[in-house]
Design a protein around this nucleic acid. Structure first.
Length: 269
DNA sequence: TCACAGGCTAGAG
DNA sequence: CTCTAGCCTGTG
């Protein structure tokens, strides 16, 4: 167990920001907000899931020890990104709507999640709703011992099962599993590419279009300049930025700002 | 019944 | 190049 203070972290805001689909809310006996976060990545079977509890004033209680925090979870929660700097950048421009969105969602961080899991998750997400996305991801994991299967251990025969609920996306995922299993270096190659290179490479896969590719770049490769535009962001841009979004203000942090804007709209809905 | 859900593909123009 | 019908399926 480990108690630490973390700035710019609000579990509920992250859970609702639409970047992760496997967190489970499991409040503790005292009613403190608690989430169970599964282990992830190639070594996911080697380390434990994390429970994280929000105590008060930026204080969090973790189920892991200091060593596991340093090794796995500190990176996952993006502790090496300067969110104070992001706040200063937003404050320095006259973008009042971004300031308001930041004030509401300042506890959002861009998690450093597993690339392969993000590829599968956002392939599923297209033209889909949160409930169904969550259920499909959970079904896939449940059928592989509770873990997101790596490309080479993925049982592709389950993809067409009605209870997995993938619909027309099943062949897209089947193809991705096949391609990444055939070329085991591809995942690592993607991590060494620039944003533009990885974006173009991802686009070449069937079922990955501009929106999904940008989500994978932002959430799976931590390319913070990626700015996914879905139906909601498209509407919000038309509403608050009729003259066009000032991307030049937010060079290098556009993806974080996108999350604040998205979360703000979600709350106002 | 019908639109919608964090879109994409394929085919036409 | 741009444009858009159709797509699995659960939900209101």
């Amino acid at each position: 167990m480990l108690d630490i203070n973390i700035r710019h972290l609000d579990l509920k805001q992250i859970a609702e920001s639409g970047q992760c689909f496997r967190w489970k809310r499991q409040d503790d006996a005292d009613g403190h907000m608690t989430y169970l976060i599964p282990s992830f990545g190639p070594g996911q079977r080697e380390f434990e899931a994390l429970t994280i509890t929000a105590l008060s004033d930026g204080e969090f209680r973790l189920s892991c020890d200091r060593r596991e925090w340093d090794k796995h979870w500190s990176g996952y929660f993006d502790m090496d990104t300067d969110y104070d700097g992001v706040e200063k950048r937003i404050d320095s421009f006259g973008d009042n709507h971004a300031k308001e969105a930041y004030a509401l969602g300042s506890g959002i961080r861009i998690l450093r999640q597993d690339l392969w899991e993000m590829i599968i998750t956002f392939l599923i997400s297209q033209n889909n709703n949160i409930t169904r996305i969550t259920r499909s991801v959970e079904e896939i994991c449940n059928r592989h011992g509770g873990y997101m299967p790596r490309p080479d251990e993925f049982d592709r025969s389950i993809l067409s099962d009605k209870s997995v609920g993938l619909g027309y996306r099943a062949p897209y995922i089947d193809n991705a599993v096949k391609e990444f299993a055939d070329d085991q270096k591809m995942l690592e190659k993607l991590t060494h590419m620039s944003y533009e290179e990885s974006y173009e490479t991802l686009l070449s896969f069937t079922g990955i279009g501009p929106k999904v590719a940008n989500c994978i770049c932002l959430f799976g490769l931590h390319h913070i300049e990626a700015f996914p535009i879905d139906t909601h962001v498209k509407q919000l841009l038309a509403k608050y930025y009729p003259q066009g979004f000032p991307y030049e203000y937010y060079e290098g942090i556009a993806g974080i700002v996108q999350q604040y804007l998205f979360y703000y709209e979600l709350c106002m809905r």
